[in-house]
Each structure stands twice: as structure tokens, then as C-alpha cells.
């Protein structure tokens, strides 16, 4: 191959590598801000002292309460407690008119995947942070990155476009679930998660 040919090939290679690793992730995801900011650290800290299950609990029937409804915020935030602009939004736009906050859920799985919190939390005693990270100590909500093709959060694939995991909660793909199941000796079957 002539020198020019090699350069052409290499240029194509470099261009596609750059596109694929740098431009593609930026293009694939679209950032959407949450309706308002929320500090988990403030609510779980010493001042308020809530635990995860105060707002995100497994009900007695085994279903998961998910993101709390605005009626759960109302008892404390019927009036603004502080001066934060986000709390003002909470009170005026959601609590007072009793309108649900359209939170964008980072961990929302595709509809064709069935995930019950009950067996994982109550039976397997898995800590919330194992899958959801140190959410409880976050001071704000990062923008929701929605996949333009699938419509789901980047959190499901993982922050790293390569799919490599640096932390246990970095990704919620089937392979992540299977790996944890294997570690704990849980036998998988298709119908267990795809009803």
C-alpha cells in the first residue's frame, strides 16, 4: 500500500474513532432538566433525617412505591420552608395545586423487563446504593440524559459509552443483573424477568 493510501486509511480510521467515541455519545443522548432540583443530602442529613425507605418503600403487598407522590411532600412543604427557588416552584406549581411532579426516573427499565423491588430489598437485603449509587448523598439532581433511540435513561446503559463498569451501580443492563445473580447463586430464566 502506498504512503498516501496508508494515510487515507488512517484518516478514515481516526475520523470514525473520533466520531464513534466522542461525537456519538453526545449525539445519542439528549439532556433534559428535571422539573425542579432536589437535594437528597438535605433530606437525609441531620436536619431532616429521612432514610431511603421513608419515601421509597416496598409496600406490604410487595409492590414498590417508587418516586413519592406530591402528597408526601405536602405535609412539610405546604408552605416554603426556606428561600430556595426550587422549593418555591415545588410549593406554587405542585403542592398547592396538588399536581404530580413529572420526575424523570433515571432507573426506569424498559416495559418489557420486569423488576420487583420486594425480593431484592426484603429478601436479598440489597442496599439501595448497590444499584442506585450514592443517590442519598447527592445535593442536586443531574440532568436526565434520554437516549434518542430507545427513550430510556443513560443510567440504564451506564455513563461509560463503552459499557465498561467502574462501579457496581454504573449501569442496569441485563448483564449487570445476571452478574449479580450469578454471584449470589440465583438461577436465571427468561420468564423471570420477561413476563
Amino acid at each position: 500500500m502506498s504512503h498516501a493510501s496508508k494515510i487515507s486509511f488512517a484518516a478514515g480510521l481516526a475520523a470514525s474513532l473520533a466520531l464513534g467515541w466522542l461525537a456519538f455519545p453526545r449525539a445519542l443522548y439528549r439532556k433534559v432538566d428535571q422539573p425542579l432540583q432536589f437535594s437528597h443530602l438535605l433530606h437525609t442529613g441531620e436536619k431532616v433525617g429521612l432514610t431511603c425507605d421513608a419515601c421509597h418503600s416496598v409496600r406490604p403487598d410487595g409492590s414498590f412505591s417508587g418516586i413519592p407522590k406530591v402528597e408526601q411532600c405536602a405535609p412539610c412543604h405546604a408552605q416554603a420552608q426556606g428561600s430556595s427557588p426550587d422549593e418555591k416552584i415545588l410549593v406554587e406549581q405542585y403542592v398547592t395545586p396538588n399536581r404530580e411532579i413529572p420526575w424523570l426516573v433515571y432507573a426506569r427499565q424498559p416495559e418489557n423487563a420486569y423488576f420487583p423491588h420486594g425480593p431484592h430489598v426484603n429478601l436479598a437485603k440489597i442496599e439501595c446504593g448497590r444499584c442506585h449509587g450514592m443517590h442519598g448523598s447527592s445535593t442536586g439532581l443531574r440532568p436526565f440524559q434520554v437516549n434518542r433511540i430507545s427513550g430510556y435513561s443513560r443510567d440504564v446503559w451506564g455513563e461509560n459509552i463503552s459499557g465498561l463498569r467502574s462501579k457496581p451501580w454504573d449501569g442496569m443492563k441485563m448483564s449487570d443483573c445476571s452478574r449479580c445473580h450469578a454471584e449470589r447463586g440465583v438461577k436465571d430464566s427468561c420468564l423471570m424477568c420477561h413476563k
Binding site: M1, S5, K6, S8, F9, A10, A11, G12, L13, A14, A15, S16, L17, L19, G20, W21, F24, P25, I161, S162, G163
Partner: peptide, 16 residues
């Protein structure tokens, strides 16, 4: 064609 070939090869090495 070499450029395109290189791009194709590179694409396979990306997550695209």
C-alpha cells in the same frame, strides 16, 4: 476508498 475502508474498520472499534 481507503478512507471509507478505514472509517468502516474504525466504526467497528467504536460503540456505534
Amino acid at each position: 476508498l481507503k478512507f471509507v475502508g478505514g472509517s468502516a474498520a474504525g466504526l467497528l472499534l467504536t460503540p456505534v
